[in-house]
Write a protein that binds this DNA or RNA. Structure first.
Length: 199
DNA sequence: TGTGCGATCCACT
DNA sequence: GTGGATCGCACAC
């Protein structure tokens, strides 16, 4: 990488959450480990969750679990589910309006070897980050350390960087793994990208 | 204080 | 294609 990349500004997360989810495709998630090593990947799949959306964790109001979604935009909402998986979301909309974009898949850019270790040593590179639970494990994200973290701060160990990605076709579909709001077409992915979790 | 289940993944058939 | 793993959280009692 020769280009100096900058974090997306907080204002990015104030546009319509569905538009933000679309525009996050092609941008970069960068994770700085305590060791100083950098892990990063291109966002290739997202889903939008809106405040009046029955599939959204915040639909029934604020709880200790989802409180990060009610905070300011440009922060991470990291939660634990199914007894073993972490999920990475980016909080959108002004403080008090609980909306977020779920990051569902990445294309690895930096730190592939460490991601492989974090994923239990699996060899197939496609399997490192082609799903929301997988990418959180590959990036060693935890609720304790990363929930509520500001992803726009320059020193943050988790940032979203602007990236001049080559042009791509975007596919819009319904969301995955939910039981409410199943007909809402708020899932977006880069057409033909091999790291997309599922077609 | 108890109970049911989830924005998933993986192994097995 | 199906079911088990596994536990924090929300909500009912």
């Amino acid at each position: 990488m020769t280009k100096l990349e900058e974090a997306l500004p907080r204002g990015f997360y104030l546009q319509d959450t569905r538009v933000a989810a679309q525009k996050l495709l092609g941008q970069i998630v960068q994770r700085r480990l305590p060791s100083g090593e950098t892990l990063s990947g291109i966002i290739v799949e997202t889903e939008a969750y809106l405040t009046d959306d029955p599939a959204c964790h915040a639909y029934r109001g604020q709880t200790p679990r989802n409180s990060a979604m009610f905070g300011p935009p440009g922060h991470a909402y990291v939660y634990f589910t199914y007894g073993l998986h972490m999920m990475l979301n980016l909080v959108c909309a002004p403080k008090g309006i609980a909306e977020a974009v779920l990051i569902r898949a990445l294309e690895p850019v930096e730190g592939e070897d460490t991601m492989r270790e974090n994923r239990g040593g699996i060899s197939e590179i496609r399997q490192l980050t082609n799903g929301p639970g997988k990418l959180a494990q590959a990036l060693a994200l935890t609720r304790l350390s990363h929930n509520g973290l500001d992803v726009t701060a320059p020193q943050s160990e988790l940032q979203i960087l602007a990236n001049a990605s080559p042009p791509f076709e975007m596919v819009t579909t319904t969301r995955i793994g939910i039981t409410q709001g199943v007909d809402l077409p708020w899932r977006y992915y880069i057409q033909g990208n091999r790291y997309v979790s599922r077609r």
